[in-house]
Amino acid sequence: MKILVCISKAPDTTSKIAFTNNNSTFDENGVQYIVNPYDEWYALVRALEIKETSGADVTIITVGRAEDEAIMRKALAIGADEAIRIDADPVDAYMVASEISNYAKNQGFDLVLTGKETINFNGSQIGGMIAEGLNLPYVSIASKLDVNGSTLTLEREIIGGVEEVEVGLPAVVSCAKGMAEQRIPNMRGIMAARTKPLHVLPPTVTETLTSYVSFASPQAKSSVKLIDPNNMDELVSLLHSEAKVI
C-alpha cells in the first residue's frame, strides 16, 4: 500500500500574529514554524500506524521553499519513508492542490491524507481540491480511519451526528482529532531522518484563483465587566438586557 501525506508548515500555536507592508504580509519576524498539528498528529501518525500493522510506504509532500525542509525532516523523524518538496511558494490553495495532484497522478498512491485544515489559513480546501484533481472520492474531516483490504471504513461528524461510511481505494481523506495520538520523535528516528530521501521537484503550476488583498487584527475587547460572585442575578440581567444573548 502506498500512502501520500500532505504536510504544511504552520506558525507555532503561541506565535504573535502581526502583519507588515501596510498589512499585506504576515510578519514572520521571530515566528517559529512547526508541522501543522492536524497533518502531524492525525494524518501522519495514522499513516504510520497503518504501515506498522499492515505494511505501507509513507511519502510526505510539501509545496514550499527550502527552509520548509526543517519541518519535513521532523515528519521523516516521526517515521515517514521519503519526502517530496515541490519548490514553490504556496500562494493559493488551488495552486498548492494542483501541484500535489499533478505529482500524485501517476504514482499509484492508494491513499492521500491531508490535515483537516492549516491553522494559519483555516481553509479546509486542499483535500477536496486534490480529490477533484485526481478524480477520486473524498471524505472530509474524518475522526476514524480503518483499512480493510481495498476498502476504508471512516467516521466523521455530520450535522447533528456521526456518520460511518465506507469507500473503496484509492481515496483522499482529511484527518481530524480522534484519528490518532500525537507521537514524539525519538533519537533513532531523528538520526535516521538525516539520510532518508528528500526529493526536490520543480513546480508545474502557475495559475492561481485567489489572493489576499490585506490582513487585519481583530479589535481588542473593551475591558471585562466584573460581577460580584454573590450577585448572579445581575449577571443574568446583563446577559438579557445589555448583551441580549438570553
Binding site: 490553495a93 488551488y94 479546509s124 477536496g128 481540491m129 477533484e132 471524505v139 472530509s140 474531516i141 461528524e157
Partner: peptide, 22 residues
C-alpha cells in the same frame, strides 16, 4: 460545514472558479 468544506473545493477545481473559504 463538513459538506461545504468538501463540495466547494471540488467545484473550484472543476469550474476553475476561485473559492473564498470561511
Amino acid at each position: 460545514d463538513f459538506q461545504g468544506k468538501a463540495i466547494a473545493p471540488r467545484l473550484s477545481v472543476r469550474l476553475k472558479a476561485g473559492l473564498i473559504a470561511g
